[in-house]
Amino acid sequence: MIYFFLFFKATIFSSGGFSNLPSLHQDLTARAWAPEADFGESLSIGQVTPGPNGLWVIVLGYLSYGFLGALLALIAITIPPFFVLLIAAIYTRLEHQRWIPGLMRGISLAVVGTFLTVFWTISKPSSGDWHSWLICLVAFGMAFSRRINILIILIIAAIAGFLLYR
């Protein structure tokens, strides 16, 4: 029950597929329900499997609690977006309020902040190793160019990892 609540809480205060990560990371590692390594792994698997990237949470649910965890995670990420119906209903009234643009800018900037902490969370375990920084940098560059599909970048990274660390 608490487990479901944590996923639910993380999603309800997030926006976009990955921004629930910092919250989940805080809660699950504090309770020792998921080791640090699970996060990087579930993000990677979430990237290569079909469906929205937000489904990485299902992998995390599975790794930390089996099929039940995955199911709970799926339900937890499906409910909060329904608030959009409520927002759609009241938005027409609030659209022209003067403080709305400021609020949106504040939220967008906060989202950038959460992504930076996500980045830090994933790269921390391998921070002493220049190979992994190189991979990180190259992946960033390839994704930045927009010419190469994400899946191909990940496959290249997998090959690099296999060659470097086997």
Partner: peptide, 21 residues
């Protein structure tokens, strides 16, 4: 070994996501 390659790549992609935002 493969994971050790993929995880930093994921971090790089995540960095791009924050840059895009």
């Amino acid at each position: 070994a493969i994971l050790k390659g993929v995880v930093p790549a994921t971090a790089g992609i995540m960095l791009l996501v924050s840059v895009n935002f």
